[in-house]
Design a protein around this nucleic acid. Structure first.
Lengths: 141, 141
DNA sequence: GCTTGAACCTCTACCTACTGTAGCTTGTAG
DNA sequence: CTACAAGCTACAGTAGGTAGAGGTTCAAGC
């Protein structure tokens, strides 16, 4: 039986995070010692590793809860799992696209920075220059 | 003079968000009508547009606070602004790299999904298969 | 067998960047 | 002058944790 600190180390999770997952019902309440300390088995280790892995892949805790429910109640189709993973992929791709646009604009901003006194600074100017944004809202476009 | 709702519409910001920015000191306390309603001028419009634009570029409110301080007290060098923008670019690039790795793994996961019953589902298997992750922590690598 | 101290416990508050709600007041168009 | 949209304050809640206070337990070394 593993103490919470050992489980934490093995899965690269903070101790508080494990207790948090228990609190929100992602991990079952584990057994306790007479003194009240949590003790975990291999099933808990697997489940936590699953959660951490999914988190690293960017799944929200809600999506992970769905996935865990699916695998806890197996007589369902793989299609449901597929839907969740696909949804996740779409979200990831959207985030990448957004960040790439952002990177382009940041690079352009920095390229134009004159490196002179602040009054010439292109970075602040670019951020201040909101013509397009205002137009977007004002025209409702 | 603009009411808060007008300012909100013009900058694409929620009314509550404007009040929040005031509360945390990013926007100055505006003038009020006799009845206590906020009234804004063009300087406020510019400042808020700057903040929203920077937020869209992924700057944190703290970074924006720094930028606003720099432009409020102008006798400083552009280099400081440059540093902040560069830091932001690095963060954006790191996030992109992480998301691209993630996309690759999600795609692989989906490609391997057998589309049969849940017991064959590769998605859950991939997520459950944490050998590498555990090894990472256990060996301290 | 006893001591020590690291690790555990609960509880609460805090973080970012907002968003939403309740219950009330003000401004303005018709 | 009335109706009601829009404003006000204050507080709670969101995700996904993290940090600290103040107290208890476990296990190793002597």
């Amino acid at each position: 039986m593993l103490a919470i600190g050992t489980l934490a180390k093995r899965t690269g999770t903070k101790v508080q995070t494990i207790r948090y997952y228990e609190q929100i019902g992602l991990l079952p309440e584990p057994g306790r010692t007479e003194g009240g300390q949590r003790r975990y088995g291999n099933a808990d280790l697997d489940r936590l590793a699953f959660i951490r892995h999914a988190r690293q892949l960017g799944f929200t805790l809600e999506a992970i809860r769905e996935l865990l429910n699916l695998s806890d109640n197996p007589p369902r189709s793989c299609a449901e799992v597929d839907v969740i993973a696909h949804r996740q992929l779409k979200e990831v791709e959207a985030r990448i696209a957004r960040l790439e646009a952002l990177r382009t604009e940041l690079k352009r901003m920095l390229r134009e920075c004159s490196r002179e006194t602040i009054s010439d600074c292109r970075v602040l100017e670019v951020l201040r220059d909101h013509g397009a944004c205002l137009a977007d809202h004002q025209t409702g476009a």
